[in-house]
Every structure is written in C-alpha cells, then in structure tokens.
Nucleic acid binder design. Structure first.
Length: 727
DNA sequence: ATGGTCGGCAAG
DNA sequence: TTGCCGACCATT
C-alpha cells in the first residue's frame, strides 16, 4: 500500500491569504488529493478554496489540524504553475498564498460547468400542422439540438408552441455539454501575404516555436510595420503543435478591433480575459482554459495566472507599456513574469513593441534576448509628416494653449472633412487652482498634491488618491468671492478653447474619468470611427488600440509634459507615448500631419519624434542611463512600503529604522518626489531603499522584515523588479 | 440601553 | 485577506 492511501495523511495547502507558508490539513480517508488539487478547506470561521502544495504537511500541532472538506472536480494546477507561484512569491517578497490567490480568482469554475438542457427532434410527426409548428420544424432541422427558448426565438413563435410539440413526442429532452466560449482557432484559416521583412521575422519566430525551448524574442518595428501579422504566424505554429497560446495586452488595448483582427486570421476569436469580464464568462473561460478547450487567450496581465495545461507561447504586445506593472498586493511586471513563465515552461516568449522599453532593448543588444527588427519601409507612406511647433515663436493667444499653427492646420483639416486629434495627457479642466487675492493654492488634505479642477463635475479632485470636494465660490483662506483662477490646461479646458475657435465643429472629449464609464467610452470611440466627430480631444487612452481611419491631424498640446518631473524614465516614457499618439494619424495612407507643441524643440525626444530616428534616441538614452547608474543599469531595486498618508509613511519609516539600525537610507517619497516613478505610475507615499543589486536588496529586505514586525493594513512591502537580471 | 465604527488579532 | 471581538463613542 502506498503512503498515499493511509488514513490520516497531512498535506500542505496554500490558502488565499498572506501566510508565509502553506497550511497543513488532514486528508480524510478515501479522499484523492495530490499536489495541484484545488480543495475546499476550513479557515478560521470560513471556507476557502486552496491549492494542495508540494512537500510534506510540515509540523503543526495535531490538535489544530482540520480536514479538507472537498476536492473540486477540476484539473489540477500544473507543476509548472506551482513553480511559477513559488518563484513570484520569492521574487516579489509576497506571501505565496497571495500569489495563489491570483490563480483562484474564479471560484465557481472549480466545479464542472453544468450541462445545458435542450431538446432535439424525434421521428414523430405532429398531430396537425399549423403555420407556427411548420416554422418550428423547419427551423429545428437546421441544427441538431436547441434550447427551448432558443428554438422559439429562432422560429419566431412563443415557447408554448414548442411545449405542445414536445407533449406529442415531436421533441425530446437531451442534455448538451456546455458551449465553448469561442470556436477553436484554425491556424491555416487565412494565411497572410507577408512582405519579405515580415516573412523573415515570421520564419525566425516559427522556428523558435517549433524548437519548443525557452527563448525570448523582441520584435521591434515602427507603427504599421505589421508586427501583429508576424506574431500571428508564431501563434499559428504553436497551435499546429497542439499548444495553447497567451497574448498579453495592456488592458486598454484589448479592443474589439484586435479581436476581429485575430478572427480574420484564425477564423475565430480568442478568449478574452480582463478585469471587467462578466463573472459568468470569467468562470467559463477559466474552466475551459484549464480543460484545454480554449486554445488562445488574449488578456490583460492577470491572464498570466490562468491555469493553462499546455501553454506553448506567450506574446507580450506593447511590451513597454507601464500598465503591465501590477501595483497592489503582489507587485509584478507581467512582461517580466511572462519571461519567467516561458523559462519555467520551456517555451518561447515574444515581446512586441514599436517603442521597446529600454531594458528590453538592452537585453536584446546584450544577447540575453533575440531581436527581430521590422524596418517597415513599405509602410512609410502611411506615417504622418511630423513637425515641432516652437511655442516661443508661435505662442498661443493670451489665456489660450493652442498655437496659431495648430489652429490653422485644424481649420484646413476641417475644411477637407477630415478629423483632428488634440492630445493632452491631463484630465479635468486645470491642474491647479489658486486665489488671486491671497495666493492660496488648493491642495489635497491627504497627500498634499494640487487639486485638479473638473469643471464639468464642479469639483476639485486629487488625481493621486481620489479625494474630491466641491469647487467653492470663495477662497477658504481669505474668504474673497469669485477670485479663484484656474492655472494650466486639462482636456476640458482645451475643449473649451477649441469650441471658441471652431463653434461649428463636432467636438468630443475622451478621458478615463468620462461619465458613463467603459460602455460610453466604447460608444464614443465607435462614433469617432464612423466620422461623427471633427475634433477629438483626449488623454492617454486615445493612444492605444483604436484606429480612426479619417484622422489626419494629430496635435500634441503639450509635448513637454512629463519631461520635467525628474523621473529617470521620463524621456523614454514621453518618447513612447508621443510615438504612439502621432502614430494614430495617417493609418489610411492619406497625407497626414503630426504637430508637437513644445517649448524645447531641441530636446532629444522632440528631435527623435520629428526625425523618426528612434535608434539614435535610444542609444543616447541608454548611454546616459548607464553613465548615471540609472535603470536598467543601476540603483533600481528597493523595498517599498507604501502608505496612504505622509504621517503613516513617516511612522513606518521610524519603525523600520528602529528595527534595523544598520539599514541604508530609507527615504519617504510623496507624490511629488521624483524617483517614485521608478516603481510605477500610481503615486502614494512610499519608503524606498536603493541598492546596487537586487539580490542584496532582497537579502536586506528579509532581515528587515524579520526584525520589524511586518507592516500591516494599508502598508505594503515590495521589491521592485530589476528588469535586467531576474532570471 | 443600543447601535455603529474601529483597531487588533488569528487562521492549519 | 477576512471575519470576529471587544472597546469606545454617540445617539435613542
């Protein structure tokens, strides 16, 4: 008899809470569990789903042991996936249970999907024919089995007609297996005509897929060079080899347009995975991925934690996108974790971007990654003509922000019946409000950054923490009425200015805080594509995914925005963002124009954008970073403790210093302080400890965490990801 | 007295 | 992370 079947076996179970190690549970006699089994266990007063982990049950007070309640009828979490969880926990200094939690996010999926009640035709004929019955029978013959209401609907009759026929034995009940969420993709559905460069790139990738070993390849090609078609070929190869495929996209790029494009190539859509997938669908997708029915998933970063059983390729599109960084609970960069997943699973990973991150480019140049470049000569005609507007020479009218040069071009574009885009990466009306009498500036009480006026909502809003208050009439400091002034532009204010210049034009403002949420946004985007707007004024979110076929002018309202915030990645980020936004124009081959309003036309970023010479920019930026020891070369890794308020952050800093007097500098960083952006985009107060090497930081972090009691509550401890040496 | 909110704590 | 408990405060 194997030890497995002894009556009171004890196994480790990873439960979804911040415990450092798996908990031990006893296995009731006769219960079949092994590493990877998903089980229901009692945890304190509640029942949770956990994963049976590797190793033995450890030593716990036998009196504490409680039995596993149930083993779900569900494929086991694979060995690779378990190693992946352990690896991420170790690397990010997160409790493994919290990593496991990311994988257990679809509770209802642990039970098999129920079969569907349906009816099918028998040989019997109805006693008498009616028009309605005729339609039902005719419709029914076009398929094998139907749901009662589905058939009624398709035949255009009430479901009582069906009931009548069923009573006569014309239909009988059957149970159908659950419907697949998507049809299987066909790798040879519509093999594309590739240009020679694309062909070469595609061959390189498909060879890597066929080799079936770990590799990382960066596909680097300007907007419109056909990267997507190329990696689709890699996907086709993986599918032919019987492997599943994951395409990671920044959430916002997961558009209808992308899914359609996939469908055009493979004859079916990929399964989608993102945060606002309806719960029902979430569960179906999770289950069908686990069972191998779903072959391709296009998903946001959390899709990395889907229980693939035969994953053979991960594609990370727009690999440079900062949205790949998860910044709560477990901090990770999905791009890097995708590489780790490939390493563990022994399969290729493809990183794609028109504007690669510096670290991926460095990894490619150093030979750690492979690189495939698409020079995209054939698409050059479609690239917009790009010019910088020197705002010192062509300043806007007093009180305005749009240069006459941009306004002129807009007028011309309107006259041609084409669309213009004004891009400004700032929500709201004005980023700062002050009192003209006493100079009072409106600040967030919680995080001391300026409050942004949202005129449409009549509020002052903190963009860091979400604090908001109604916009007062009088200054809270000196009490003077009607002397508050808005300083600087946001998209709402640009819209106001545009309306003043072009009262006849149809103007749409797009920003993430738009009333009506994602649905409304989707509708607006569609309306724009259909030509129902003349001028679009938008933030970040116009940069991604969507194609506006008639958009021939892109005006960057403030190209310098984001350059001066002290972030070591500022130039890189600005370059990436501006490339993407200007790439929105000219997708149709029509002559198009991109204008950058800037006060520093000599800045390397502006020069790179205008000349199209990305390589020179990257080279320069790389050298500069290396010289300064900035990421991805130097002092990047650190422990971060983030807190909601400054006081809180300060008190944690004191506690940590007390606990570990040998600690290197612990800085408290607020929203305004520069190096924050090293870690990510969403600013809260953080404590940062710099180090030269990740491993040192990690070792130090452990000592610190052991010495101090682990900060609780609103506080998180994490190590940022050193983008170079994580394997 | 009653009810609501909040901080601390334990969970196998 | 979640749920529970006891402490504390404010109101019925």
């Amino acid at each position: 008899m194997k030890p497995d079947s002894q009556p009171s076996r004890v196994v480790p179970v990873l439960v979804p809470m911040p415990a450092e190690r798996p908990y031990s549970y006893s296995v009731p006699a006769g219960m079949q569990v092994g590493p990877g089994s998903i089980v229901r266990v009692p945890l304190g007063p509640r029942q949770v789903a956990g994963i049976v982990w590797d190793g033995d049950g450890g030593s716990v007070d036998p009196k504490k042991l409680r039995p596993i309640e149930e083993v779900f009828d569900c494929p086991r979490v694979t060995y690779d996936m378990r190693r992946f969880v352990d690896w991420i926990a170790e690397y990010t200094l997160s409790p493994p249970g919290m990593v496991a939690r990311m994988l257990l996010r679809a509770p209802a999926a642990f039970d098999p999907e129920p079969w569907v009640e349906a009816i099918e035709r028998t040989d019997a004929a109805p006693d008498r024919m009616t028009a309605a019955r005729g339609r039902v029978l005719e419709t029914a013959d076009t398929g094998l089995a139907w749901t009662r209401s589905g058939l009624a609907h398709a035949a255009g009759v009430s479901s009582t007609v069906i009931d009548g026929l069923k009573a006569q034995g014309v239909f009988r009940d059957v149970m159908l297996p659950p419907r697949p969420v998507v049809a299987p993709p066909d790798p040879s559905y519509a093999a594309p005509q590739l240009m020679p460069d694309q062909e070469r790139a595609a061959v390189t990738l498909t060879e890597k897929v066929s080799a079936g070993t770990f590799s990382v390849t960066l596909i680097d090609g300007v907007t419109g060079s056909g990267k997507t078609e190329v990696y689709f070929e890699a996907i086709a190869a993986a599918l032919k080899n019987g492997r599943q495929v994951l395409i990671l996209l920044p959430e916002i790029a997961l558009t209808h347009a992308f899914l359609e494009r996939f469908q055009d190539r493979f004859g079916a859509k990929p399964a989608e995975w993102h945060s606002d997938l309806p719960p029902r669908m979430r569960e179906k997708v999770w289950r069908q991925v686990a069972e191998g029915q779903v072959r391709v998933v296009a998903g946001a970063r959390s899709a990395l934690f889907l229980p693939f059983r035969e994953l053979g390729l991960v594609v990370v599109d727009e690999e440079h996108d900062p949205a790949y960084k998860q910044e709560d609970r477990v901090y990770y960069n999905a791009r890097d974790m995708a590489v780790v997943r490939g390493h563990i699973g022994g399969f290729p990973v493809v990183l794609a971007s028109a504007t690669p991150s510096l670290e991926s480019r460095v990894n490619a140049l150093s030979g750690r990654y492979d690189r495939v470049a698409l020079p995209a000569r054939f698409a050059e005609a479609a690239l917009p003509d790009l010019k910088a507007i020197d705002m010192r020479r062509a300043p806007p009218a007093r009180g305005g922000f749009l240069s006459p040069v941009l306004l002129d071009e807009t007028r011309r574009t309107l006259e041609r019946g084409e669309q213009s885009l004004f891009f400004l990466n700032r929500r709201g009306y004005a980023p700062l409000t002050l009192c003209r009498v006493c100079g009072h500036r409106f600040q967030c009480p919680d995080c001391s950054s300026w409050l942004v006026e949202h005129r449409f909502r009549g509020q002052l809003v903190c963009h860091h923490c979400g604090h908001n208050e109604p916009r007062p009439e009088a200054c809270p400091e000196c009490g003077t009425l009607d002397h508050l002034v808005a300083c600087g532009p946001g998209v709402e204010r640009i819209a106001e200015e545009a309306v003043g210049h072009f009262p006849e034009a149809r103007i749409i403002v797009l920003s993430s805080d738009m009333l009506g949420g994602v649905r409304r946004l989707r509708l607006e985007l569609e309306a724009i594509s259909k030509g129902e707007a003349d001028i679009v004024i938008g933030t970040q979110l116009v940069a991604k995914g969507h194609n506006f076929p008639n958009m021939t002018l892109v005006g960057i309202v403030d190209a310098d925005l984001g350059l001066a915030n002290g972030d070591p990645r500022a130039a890189e980020r600005t370059f990436q963002l501006l490339s993407q936004v200007t790439g929105r124009a000219g997708r149709t081959g029509k002559k198009s124009l991109g204008l950058l309003q800037t006060y520093q036309p000599e800045h390397p970023v502006m020069k790179a954008i205008v000349s199209g010479d990305a390589e020179a920019f990257y080279e320069r930026e790389t050298e500069e970073r290396q010289r300064a020891g900035m990421p991805p070369f130097g002092r990047l890794a650190g422990i971060i403790v983030s807190a909601a308020t400054r006081q809180e952050a300060e008190s944690h800093a004191r506690a940590l210093r007390r606990a570990a007097p040998a600690a290197p500098d612990i800085q408290v960083l607020g929203p305004a302080e520069a190096p924050l952006a090293l870690i990510g985009g969403r600013h809260r107060f953080r404590l940062l400890i710099h180090g030269e090497r990740r491993s040192d930081i990690q070792k130090f972090a452990r000592t610190l965490l052991a010495a101090a009691e682990r900060p609780r509550g609103s506080v998180r401890v994490q190590v940022d990801i050193d983008p170079q040496s994580f394997l």
